[in-house]
Nucleic acid binder design. Structure first.
Lengths: 326, 326
DNA sequence: CTGAAAGCGCTTACAG
DNA sequence: CTGAAAGCGCTTACAG
């Protein structure tokens, strides 16, 4: 910057004014400075600027994992939203581990990042103290557990997701419905299902693993013990893919002999055979809302708490049909 | 830091020495300073330190996307490796888009990051100029295209991956083998297949989409046109999952009527029915090698070019069996 | 082993 | 509209 100033025959300060497009410099000088900038290939050092202004243009994001279609999509969308505002993203994964979460948070705090985005991992909630101590603005994202006091959160209506799934089955005439679920994590989805169904599920099997294999095993158990079910709801798509396999294995054709509905709408669900009817969460909107709220807090310095709940949407595909038994 | 110094009755410099554990301070003073640090909850500001030392302890990572099991896994492993060394990761996605890549790279360069990790997206190679201009140490990761001159790269032996898949089919007696491929991107895998098979594939269908659906469609085409094939190789697992569906749809049981082998070993492959025989790449090792090489370059300032090629490994599962036709 | 000074590359008031 | 000064929070020589 000094070099640029020298070359343009002005002061560092004037260079700064030009670079930051502050309209206080004569067109003449601007031109001279810009020429020098171009010739020297000068780019301002964000680090130094950050130190001087207290704004680093970096946002931290803490997620349980990246190797889950849902979080991967979320991180990607957040990076996009941030990119549009000139911000960079530093990510940390917690694996739902207390110590790791604490370490990540402590690490980020030293980075002088401008704000923090936290995804629910059923654990980070317990570490909120650390976040609060930093005084950093933060937004809770996709929070499925109980929502902490005095926080800004952008999340989905998980209960409604369950409701939409249940209502769909009900409208198709299903009375005996089985549930394969990631429980108790997805308790709200289950509550919603009950409401949509207008009755208790005939059987509920909690999956041990939050994976396709887990869904397969749980569905196998369920179908063996409750053969009367005409439909199954999975509390998320990965489980549903396993349920689909298990159903085929048990000689139940989907959707003729068994309807399947799920929640999440990961890409694989739409590409399964048959494609799975599921409930989609507007992840892109979440990313936009969360970042815009965070950046607003960064800009104003004000911390307005409040919960934004985004509505899920039913995506009807071929895995659901009218119940044969009426 | 000034506050800490005041409280401990020493100078900023001494505080700095204590915080950085430089063994030049009397135990006495160390204790006093540490007490003050604890009382004030002081943490050194990495930003300021970065400005002073020229090391930010941040590494940039540029990948085509996060919503692909392979890259997600890679990013996660890199974050882990970096975390172990006290580094933070800022990620950028390119979507294989020229302009976006350029923008990302320009953005990172202003950040004074310590180094850059670049994943092959078939495009970033063209932008290597920008990276070189920055003078930043960088390492190319999982490079499947042609390897640029004078670079450090840590990658997999893609040809061998294809070879292992082909050899497996050959050993099982398959002579008529079909290929469903992401071509020309996966040309090397195909070359390897040829070598392992010891002959030309009976049919090759390039998939239009790099997804399960793409694999399904390509396999449908292939099975319709070349019914004589006793085995199919997919050039990556997502395609293979689609092939599996298509085979079932066409009444070909896997592996009895059709063997299926693939490459990548994403989690879903092991959980499909039947689980897919595939070739695994040691992503964790790649992450470790790439970061350790990068950090070594950061530390020494020396840029040693060279290619590290990591060997893939065949994972035999239930989708392959001896050819019925002999 | 400890302290005073200069500097990393920027920005923010404040005079002129 | 332009320039000289001080400061962001640290570190790096260099004296004492």
């Amino acid at each position: 910057m000094k070099d640029v100033a020298l070359r343009a025959g002005v002061t560092k300060q004037t260079v700064s004014n030009v670079v930051n497009k502050r309209p206080v410099v004569s067109p003449d000088t601007v031109a001279r400075v810009e020429k020098a900038v171009a010739e020297l290939g000068f780019r301002s050092n964000l680090l130094a600027r950050g130190l001087a202004t207290g704004q680093t243009m970096i946002v931290g994001l803490v997620v349980p994992t990246l190797t889950s279609a849902f979080y991967a999509e979320m991180v990607e969308q957040i990076e996009n939203a941030l990119d549009g505002e000139g911000y960079n993203l530093v990510v940390g994964t917690t694996y739902g581990d207390q110590d790791r979460t604490r370490r990540k948070l402590e690490g980020l705090r030293q980075r002088s990042i401008d704000g923090l985005l936290l995804a629910d991992d059923g654990n980070v909630g317990g570490q909120l103290e650390i976040v609060r101590e930093t005084g950093l603005p933060f937004v809770l994202c996709a929070w499925e557990n109980e929502i902490p006091e005095d926080t800004t959160v952008v999340t989905f209506d998980y209960e409604k997701a369950g409701y939409l799934a249940g209502r769909q089955l009900r409208q198709l005439g299903h009375r005996q419905v089985g549930v394969v679920g990631d429980l108790p994590a997805h308790q709200r989805r289950l509550d919603g299902l009950r409401r949509g169904l207008g009755r208790e599920p005939a059987a509920i099997v909690a999956s041990r693993e939050s994976s396709q294999r887990g869904g397969y095993n749980a569905a196998a158990t369920l179908l063996a013990g409750a053969a009367e079910v005409t439909a199954i709801m999975a509390t998320h798509d990965l489980l549903a893919l396993g349920v689909l396999e298990a159903a085929k294995q048990h000689g139940r054709r989907v959707p003729d002999d068994l309807s399947l509905v799920s929640i999440d709408d990961i890409e694989a669900s739409g590409q399964a055979h048959p494609p799975v009817t599921t409930v989609a969460f507007p992840i892109e909107r979440l990313a936009q809302e969360a970042t815009s709220r965070l950046l607003r807090a960064v800009g104003t310095g004000r911390r307005r708490s409040g919960v934004t709940t985004l509505p899920p949407k039913l995506v009807v595909r071929a895995s659901t049909a009218r119940s044969a038994r009426r």
